[in-house]
Design a protein around this nucleic acid. Structure first.
Lengths: 219, 219, 219, 219
DNA sequence: CATGAATGAGCTTTCATTCAT
DNA sequence: CATGAATGAAAGCTCATTCAT
């Protein structure tokens, strides 16, 4: 009743199309958010046919979810490689700050992806059992550093691990996440290498102050 | 099929449709980002016809730009009312932290709007002469506080006003901006009143430590 | 962020586009069933833009539902014009048969539309309050004829109005609904005028026999 | 993710995949019409891979054609088993009515399949030499019954075999084919056992009246 | 035969936007 | 100003079908 002719171009050497799509999706979702992202653009960037995305992933939403999950998993994996047991607490703390900061710096898509997730009130992440299953090693690592530091009298006792973690993340994330509006507002290009370097030094020090002993202004 | 919301204020001669649209646009853009926002939804929320939006504002983009500009202006106006000249430096600094934090807390749309702007690399803000013209009084205020504090020996000399401002903004903004993914990840509801209260106390103290004198761990 | 240019051709004299779409939809759904029908084909046949269909009717399904409802209503209206009160029962019965038969004959889309509805197990009709509200006058009319006939001893008492109605409908509907496969199978073109005429005569007589007095073969 | 249904018959060497596909196709085409039917659904129901359907049957249309042909052949075979030579004409006629009715009743897919064929104007059946080659024994059988009946003075002479056959088919087919819309319209569930039983009795009697001697109302 | 990969063609639907009245 | 009519452009997705292994 209807006929469908067909042309087929032989694929050379079976490249990793699935991986290419995921990589392109990460960039596209990070650059445009969920609604702004275009399946066709992802396909073009990955060098594949639009329909292949549906073949592999089923829907735009499913692809998005997978992209977010992968991003989380990548961070988790990177955190897992942190080995700071042998460093003195203050130094170890500095390493955690640097690690977090540099991870954000080197994974700008992670930041915009997280922003998109938060725009959607964390809907997808909450649904994802894969994300829920992640251990986020950084928390345990940081906790152990803080304990050691407190025992050594180098860190205060009235700051929780969660608070210190939030401070570390905030100081790094916000600078990068909001760098465009901030650069405009402050009249400096926050993305410039020098600014980036100085900010890293500043927040390493800042976190040490925040975690440090004593009461500010107590004297 | 369409409803017109009751007037809030005892019947002004003609209802402020322009204002209603802008208010609805703020909520819609904040809740859904630029591409996710729907002109039709804005019109419905404002109790007006879609076409009126074009009549008044010309296009979705123009409306968005105006929305962002207004949000910036609102913040600017609020900052302008800060009068901390008479407070001792440490206390004045605490007031700046609280002011910033509470402004974010009470203007959640401001945060998602800024995130959207940053997703678009600040394109619209950069183009806006109105936003460029804003003075952002908080910087001057903070600068004066820091100077006073340094003179009094209460604040360090090697931290710039910009750095302290960024720290203040980061510690408040990030907590709220990312509260959905963070709540999920940390297993606490960061939006709960108690958490919010504790975080305020924590960051007031944190900023004082960051701005404070001496070198951490120097002893 | 995205612009949309526009060209507009001035519409001449405001034709009834809504009506044109409904007429085209009736033909298209009747000719191809629900899944086989194409919105684009309906638009083309009505001489309008595809999107206008969505503007007026919202969705393919809503258009289909409206089409079915209209078809039912048309039949109802036609039945309402039957005025057979003054005819003797046998003659009045013949008129009902002829009316039903000719209605089917002149409204071939009604038949395929009903078949489509039955393919879908009457889903849409059942949902339609508009269809449920129809009186279907033919039943009342037929009932009154049968009563008169029974009183006059011309009709049997052991056949219900519903049964006689079903017989009338069946004998007319099936012939037309299945004429393609039947023509092929019987080796005659059932759509040929002569065949049509003869079948009308046959079923008028047949229904009279079915409604008539006595028991067949009783003698 | 895909399940293979258990074998009905004590494990024949290899399961009859072709037969399973045809059975599933009959159900799918009958339930959804041609355009509404899905190859994937047929494959799933048959417990095979989509591509196997193409391997065996070449295309959706070819599968559909075969399905229709098989349905026709099944009816033909069933008709071939009718042996009514020894019964008195009126009784034999009743048996033909019952046979036809019950065949429809027990093969609901046959009815929707025929409707689909008629929606497509009998295009496929006309093309099928296999269907054209079928003898359709019921016509010959009915013809012989009518002849015997006329000779015995029990049947009228002015009704053709074809007309009587059409009446038989119509009274059975229409009731079942349109039962969904009719049930809705009449306010009775025509599929209820009691209704089904009563309708059988009614049409057996009705056909006897239609084929019977004399002229209705002639007295 | 089984199956993963891939795609042409097209479908319904969305959305911002324009225009005439 | 208000509103019904109308549409360009595209977006996400479906489905039958093919091909290589």
């Amino acid at each position: 009743m209807r006929e469908r002719p067909a042309l087929q171009v032989p694929a050379p050497r079976r490249p990793d199309r699935r991986g290419a799509i995921l990589a392109a999706a990460l960039r596209e979702f990070a650059a445009n958010g969920y609604s702004g992202a275009r399946i066709e653009r992802i396909a073009a960037a990955a060098g594949v046919n639009d329909r292949l995305i549906y073949y592999y992933f089923g829907s735009k939403e499913a692809l998005y979810l997978l992209t977010v999950e992968n991003a989380y998993e990548d961070l988790n994996r990177a955190e897992g490689k942190l080995a700071l047991g042998s460093l003195p607490p203050r130094e170890a703390l500095a390493q955690v700050v640097k690690f977090t900061w540099r991870y954000y710096l080197e994974h700008p898509e992670f930041i915009t992806l997280l922003n998109t997730e938060n725009l959607h009130r964390g809907r997808n992440i909450r649904k994802s059992s894969r994300v829920r299953g992640l251990s986020r090693p950084v928390i345990a690592i940081l906790d152990s550093i803080l304990r050691r530091g407190r025992r050594a009298g180098e860190f205060r006792r009235d700051a929780t691990t969660r608070q210190v973690y939030l401070a570390i993340a905030a100081l790094g994330y916000f600078y990068l996440s909001n760098r465009h509006t901030l650069s405009n507002f402050l009249g400096v290009d926050l993305a410039a290498p020098r600014q980036v370097r100085e900010w890293e030094a500043f927040i390493v020090d800042a976190v040490q102050r925040v975690a440090g002993p004593g009461r500010p202004g107590a004297g």
